[in-house]
Amino acid sequence: MRMTRPRLALLALLCWPVFPGLAQDAPVAMPASPAPAQASLALPASDWTAPALEPFVATYQAFYKGKEAGDATMQVTHVGGNQWRVDMAVRGRKGFASVLGLNLEQSTVFDVREGTYVPLTQSTVKKALFFGKKVTGVYDWNARTAQWDGDLKKERRQPIALEPGDQSALLLNLSLMRDARPGSTLGYRYVDVGRVRRYEYRAADATENVQVGDLSYDALRVFRTNGGDNETILWIANGVPTPVRILQRDKGEDEIDLRLVEYQGV
């Protein structure tokens, strides 16, 4: 059975806020951003407080091209000392995702060193009716290399030279939560599942009112500026440790949309 692109696109939910697998590599002009839900609210940068890294569990409602496809859960756990773990699970419960039995899990164990998130290990598991895939990786900071093993092409199992500040897919999202300020520009090097890419982002100059389900948030919009036709936008709010909404757009059309349902400390 051959999976069509729309079905494959659901797999990209695993990399939720940045969707690295869908983005193009070459830098291009800044994409147009979606209109805010209501009039923009001017919040000075000095009044913005970045969410602190703390244990939590967050649940998202997942949509694909405007139709509900399932749900996603993100969890951050303090392992002990400077070590933490971030996990993301996506479950297909509607439409093709339900029929195919799509279940995806990703996790990264990381250290916090002088305010920087340093990946140590990474794993990805994809399960479906007709296939499964498991990949594990180790960031060896003594040898300054990262390497993955498992269900990957040979060229993606080769060692990758590490640079200070390198991020996994999930850590990249936490770093955006930590670093974004009104009007700021951000750049990161992504090293995950045998690939290296550069990502550039910009935060809006002011917060805006974002409606997510029955709740309204005064949130800061952060969007990738070198994704080509694939736009990635997330909204973060003061006091909320996880994005309240993450949106992937393809050629101006909404594609993958994660909307926060609830979160709680653990």
Rank of each mutant, 00 (worst) to 15 (best):
D192I: 08
L152C: 00
T207V: 13
Q167T: 04
V118C: 01
A169V: 10
V138W: 02
R202I: 09
V193Q: 13
R202D: 04
T225N: 12
G132L: 03
L100Y: 14
R197E: 13
Q147T: 11
S107E: 09
L176G: 04
A203L: 08
F96C: 02
R181A: 15
G227I: 10
E105W: 13
M177A: 12
P182W: 12
D149G: 10
V210N: 05
N209E: 13
F96P: 15
A204T: 05
L170Y: 10
L215R: 13
L129V: 10
G228S: 01
I160K: 07
G213I: 04
K153A: 14
V118A: 01
L172Y: 05
S168L: 00
D218F: 02
L102A: 07
L152Y: 00
Q106C: 01
R202G: 12
P119T: 04
P164E: 07
P182A: 11
Y199V: 13
D214Q: 14
L172E: 06
R181K: 15
A219G: 06
D111A: 13
D192A: 11
A206M: 07
R224E: 06
R202W: 04
G194L: 05
Y188W: 07
V135F: 08
S123F: 06
R221S: 07
Y199H: 09
G187Y: 00
K133Y: 08
L129R: 11
P119W: 09
A128E: 15
A203R: 03
A169Y: 00
Y188L: 06
T136I: 03
A204R: 01
G227R: 09
R181E: 13
N173G: 15
W148V: 06
L176Y: 03
A180W: 00
Y217I: 05
P159I: 02
V196S: 12
Y139F: 11
R221M: 08
D218I: 04
Q158A: 14
T116E: 15
Q106V: 02
A203E: 09
E114P: 05
A169H: 00
L171K: 02
P182I: 10
P159E: 01
Q122T: 11
R113M: 11
D149R: 14
R144D: 05
N103V: 10
L215G: 00
F96L: 11
E163R: 14
V212K: 09
D205A: 15
R221F: 02
L129D: 08
Y190D: 09
Y217N: 05
R221Q: 13
L171P: 01
T145G: 00
